[in-house]
């Protein structure tokens, strides 16, 4: 009688193992691209020097922090990053950043032509030209 009971229990255990294995296999090919979208280093150099001072998680500049926080940016998902890049691009094209008020006291904070170009190129999302 007891041995008879053992059979379905074994079957059940075997089933669980099988089940676990299947699940494992699936979870392997989900989300492989976490490290894909880092900011290129030459862009990051400009950001660190000219933007990060106000746009970081511990910034005393509340408005700057709220509008854009680079620490947060790096942790965001791709769609969010691209959305932010689009807004950065717009602000740069309009000449809104760095703010004129800020540059009055800190003229060395101005973006050089090359730096601006670097940021514009990057924030445009590097869309391939349509064929």
């Amino acid at each position: 009688m007891k041995k008879l009971l053992l059979l379905p229990v074994l079957a059940l255990v075997a089933f669980f193992f099988l089940h676990a294995k299947v699940k494992d296999n699936i979870s392997i090919d989900v989300k492989p691209d976490v490290l894909e979208d880092q900011i290129p280093s030459h862009v990051k150099a400009v950001i660190d020097q000219k933007c990060y001072g106000c746009h970081n998680a511990d910034s005393k500049n509340e408005k700057g922090k709220e509008k854009l926080d680079w620490d947060d940016f790096e942790a965001s998902r791709k769609a969010k990053q691209l959305a932010t890049m689009a807004k950065i691009n717009e602000a740069l094209i309009k000449g809104d950043m760095p703010p004129a008020k800020f540059l009055e006291n800190k003229p060395e904070g101005k973006l050089s032509k090359e730096e601006l170009e670097t940021l514009l190129d990057w924030s445009a999302g590097k869309k391939k030209s349509p064929k």
Partner: peptide, 12 residues
């Protein structure tokens, strides 16, 4: 609007 702009607007 191009894709980037659309993304920015959706985020807004």
């Amino acid at each position: 609007m191009d894709l980037m702009k659309q993304l920015g607007k959706l985020d807004d």
